[in-house]
Write a protein that binds this DNA or RNA. Sequence first.
DNA 1: GTTAGCACTCATTTCACTAGAGTGCTAATT
DNA 2: AATTAGCACTCTAGTGAAATGAGTGCTAAC
Lengths: 345, 345
Amino acid sequence: MELDDRKLKILQAIIRTYLETGEPVGSRTISKYSDLNLSSATIRNEMSDLEEMGYILQPHTSAGRIPSDKGYRLYVDTMLEAKEGEVNSLREELQEKAEKIDDVLQQVAKFLATNTNYATMVSGPRYQTKRVKFIQITSVDEEHLLAVIVLDNNAVKNQMIRIEEPIPDEVMVKLNFILNTTLNGLDVLEMNLAVIQRIKEQMGEHTQVIDSVLEVIGKTLVDQDDLEVYTSGATNILRYPELSDKSKAADLLNAFEEKKVIHQWLGLPEKGKDNDTHDIQVYIGDETQVDSMKDCSMVTATYQIQEGVYGRIGIVGPKRMDYDKVVGTLNSLMGQLDDIFKEKK
Amino acid sequence: MELDDRKLKILQAIIRTYLETGEPVGSRTISKYSDLNLSSATIRNEMSDLEEMGYILQPHTSAGRIPSDKGYRLYVDTMLEAKEGEVNSLREELQEKAEKIDDVLQQVAKFLATNTNYATMVSGPRYQTKRVKFIQITSVDEEHLLAVIVLDNNAVKNQMIRIEEPIPDEVMVKLNFILNTTLNGLDVLEMNLAVIQRIKEQMGEHTQVIDSVLEVIGKTLVDQDDLEVYTSGATNILRYPELSDKSKAADLLNAFEEKKVIHQWLGLPEKGKDNDTHDIQVYIGDETQVDSMKDCSMVTATYQIQEGVYGRIGIVGPKRMDYDKVVGTLNSLMGQLDDIFKEKK
DNA sequence: GTTAGCACTCATTTCACTAGAGTGCTAATT
DNA sequence: AATTAGCACTCTAGTGAAATGAGTGCTAAC
């Protein structure tokens, strides 16, 4: 059987109505509230066909129809067009508070959550390169050194180091010099035993401090992977009866508390994507590959902070989420984000 | 009417039974499952008295009794004794990961949530003194300076400063010297115009950089107030039918997403408290002063990281929360925390 | 090809009814 | 005087039958 134009229109109407009401849609409703001018009987016939083709389902014999995953998929694939607008308000808000990327991302999560009424998560940027750009060790007081490490993405990490006895100034100067000349531009993998040995040889004494410092550096670089996640509006899940069933909702909400889980959900951005497309993906039901989301849909997008530095945004809602609006909002937002990050750079 | 020993025992029995079951408790239940050896009729009479005195309520005419806020209050006040134990497992876990106070607090929240099955929140430490201990400005590359500020509680803040043109090394040295000698030991209030003027005079040129630097310092010191909050187990709220009513639960859960709200809930620790008592407080229903918590109870405690640096822990659950266990766990935990922070120091 | 009409299905609502838990009161018992 | 047994009464939760109504599928007419 072929999916002709009329069937497509009916399917659209069914899905749109269902998105609004969340109730199974009957033939009469479509007959009345669409501009197709067909009787309910005709609609019924077509619906019957659509069901046979797998685009819609009947929850039970004498109920209306609801879209199947396949139906949603078709809807998303064919009927989506990016829309601009509505996001401008965010822009100004963002720029005021946009001092730290952390804040921006948290704001983005919140903005999306309040605007879409779905649950939102944003994964912090993953820096694909993590090389040391600058190291400075300073003595703060008799017992503490402060190690400040700037990475080549301008992220700054710092860590206190406790020492047994004060280190003379001239040793500090020497230490800093050696560290910077030796480690500059290296990533964690390149800091092997040979490099460490070379540093120790140059320092002569005070090798104990070197050990501490290197340990801190190592931790700092690896720690980078311990990515942040920003979420907002998790409780929006409770808005949708089909998800707010106790055990399901608890599962989902729990997962929202676990950064690891969210990272797993969001996955990694695909590299090598075109810069302009924000790689917006829609996962419906089982497509999410996450069991507790089998009654949900998730829309994800990839944002880019600078060349090679990506993060992801995810919006989770019921299957009947307003894909059109979500994708539109995301698309528009991504444009704004690009601008903001460009300016910051 | 007087609350004699028998009435007290019956009240205890009612509350304990209600804590277990969450259902109204009838006279027969108490008669059977308490060692008072009284018939249900006698219990009924006593219950009637207890109700008159305001310690228990009847949800409707022919239902059993449930404790009133006043009843809970009495229970909490009279029947509570600190218990040790059960918390030892946390200790080891904590010490492994206890590199940063952030992590410790997040762990604490999680530990409490999983162990009590209630929602938990921990407010980050409030440093009552925020004086500059050490400042260092370094040039990272042609366009960026890095300001690192160490406060007298050893918290480290850093901020990139964008500059138009490179600053010569000797100027940097001078700048650092001036900043450290002038600002050391000052708090944000003491950095008034006179101080700023003095710095500028000493620097002579490059006053523009000074402005940026001071702005950063100001922000950093004030920013301190923007306290962190760690939460865990918010979804435990859904476990308790009396709270999991849609709109109530949504209210509560939403609040858990807002750091500000949580701070308000937790309030500030009372200063000048004895070090040993952890100032454990129990708020029942309206006592929380928070509307969305009127069906909840909250137990709070104050922890101390070092002299003058306090934070708070709160546990939110249904009114029929197991006060005994919660307070016991908290008490024990606080002891452990004290030890850990002492060691770190 | 489209539509009207009708019998049929099934979830949901409504209502009356019952069982059971619990109370309050009174009178009997200790 | 305190305790208990007994009983009438109240109220909720649960059950099942009947009514409701949205919706379908099929057939025959247009």
